[in-house]
């Protein structure tokens, strides 16, 4: 398991030219499947600023590698809202489905092999990734 804070800001390296094509900015999480479906990239030299999980060639401790800068592109239509800054999971307050506040999301722990979110880390607790119900513009909602 790795935490997003371990790789946040890491360079996205284009292996064909050995140049940096951007830096990891935020994870993009699909609340329905509890998986990281991609990353938002800042200072992108590609056509857009979203790197889909399927386009990642390697996810290492010091860099993320891609086969070409073209992989960092605009999101597909179904992920357009999801990948925006307004639906970022980090720093968003967490509510249970019964309206109890749990705190803000500090970090996301995920499985680097398939992107499955294992835990949302809050200030002094954590929430199992399987409890995710929704990530909206107001709050992250979890079951229980």
């Amino acid at each position: 398991m790795i935490r997003f804070s371990d790789i946040a800001g890491n360079p996205v390296m284009d292996t064909s030219t050995a140049t940096t094509v951007g830096k990891l900015e935020a994870p993009i999480i699909d609340p329905a499947t509890h998986r990281i479906v991609g990353f938002r990239v800042k200072k992108s030299k590609g056509p857009g600023d979203v790197l889909l999980w399927a386009s990642v060639a390697g996810l290492g401790p010091d860099a993320v590698t891609v086969s070409s800068a073209e992989q960092v592109s605009d999101p597909p239509p179904e992920l357009k809202d999801r990948s925006g800054r307004k639906l970022d999971v980090l720093k968003r307050p967490v509510l249970t489905e019964h309206g109890h506040p749990l705190g803000k999301v500090k970090d996301v722990e995920f499985d680097p092999s398939d992107g499955r979110v294992t835990n949302l880390l809050l200030k002094d607790s954590f929430v199992d990734g399987g409890r995710l119900l929704g990530i909206g513009k107001y709050a992250v909602v979890v079951a229980g």
Partner: peptide, 10 residues
């Protein structure tokens, strides 16, 4: 008090 959907939108 805000009314929030399970998808997280107020």
């Amino acid at each position: 008090r805000p009314v929030v959907t399970l998808a997280g939108d107020d």
